[in-house]
Amino acid sequence: MKNPEALLIIDYTNDFVADSGALSTGKPGQKIEPEILKLANQFIKAGNYVIFPTDLHEKNDLFHPETKLFPPHNLKNTWGWQLYNTVQPWYESHATSQQVYYFDKNRYSAFVNTNLDNFLRTHKINSLTLTGVCTDICVLHTAISAYNLNYQLTIPQNAVASFDQVGHNWALTHFKNSLGAKII
């Protein structure tokens, strides 16, 4: 029997995707929504997992390094922290499923300070498909962590986006050439 796989939908929130989001990728982030939902439905239908590693911050956290780099974003229990557009109702309609999980994270990588690696290993998952935003920040750091933990990586280029096109393109090349990821 083939091991299950996991689709990670990274940081696909209002603050990172909506026009009025605090750190919005804007149109590039919005454009990938149909592909993310298509993949999520395919993963569910195939008996695989869909995981939402999602950035979470506390207001005025003076000790978090991102406080010095970015404006407040993805603050707990705010509109900005909610999943973007039709992804939020998709998640809500599947949240009770044994195939859909949500992980709060407080660093760029979905593996740092979370139980994600333990969850994946417990479920015998060794192949990950990474989607979401930002290609050159949280998706990149998650991919590097996954590579270092020996996960096989697939990156659908039509399901990742950034507010920096140069960084986005660089990250796609890095995934392929330095992490051995399959770019589709």
Rank of each mutant, 00 (worst) to 15 (best):
L172V: 01
I36C: 07
G26L: 15
Q30D: 09
S127T: 15
T129Q: 12
A159Y: 03
S93M: 11
W170P: 00
Q42K: 15
H73M: 07
D15L: 02
L153Q: 08
A6C: 15
Y91K: 08
H73V: 06
V160S: 03
P89I: 02
I183N: 04
L149T: 05
W81G: 00
E92V: 04
Y49C: 06
Y102S: 11
E5T: 15
K68N: 08
A143T: 05
A171L: 00
P156F: 02
P71Y: 06
G180F: 07
D61C: 07
K76R: 14
D164T: 00
Q157A: 10
S24Q: 12
H73F: 08
G167T: 01
Y108P: 04
G180N: 06
A110Q: 04
L23H: 02
L83D: 04
L120V: 00
K31D: 14
N48A: 10
K76N: 09
L120T: 01
T114N: 03
I125P: 05
L172R: 01
N3C: 12
N126D: 14
H123V: 07
E66F: 13
Y108D: 08
A18F: 09
F175G: 01
D15E: 01
Q152G: 05
D117P: 00
A18N: 06
I155W: 02
I36V: 15
T114I: 10
G180W: 09
Q157Y: 11
P156Y: 10
N77S: 14
T131Q: 10
G21T: 11
F43Y: 15
S145R: 04
D136Y: 02
N148W: 10
F103I: 14
L153K: 08
Y102F: 15
A181I: 02
S109F: 04
N113I: 00
P71L: 07
S109I: 05
W81H: 13
E66C: 09
V166G: 00
I10T: 06
C134E: 13
V133S: 12
I144A: 09
N14T: 06
L172E: 06
I44Y: 07
N126T: 13
H57Y: 12
D55P: 00
Q165A: 08
I184N: 13
H168I: 03
N118G: 10
L39E: 11
D15K: 03
I137D: 01
I183Y: 03
V112S: 08
H174G: 00
P71C: 07
Y101N: 09
L62C: 00
K2E: 15
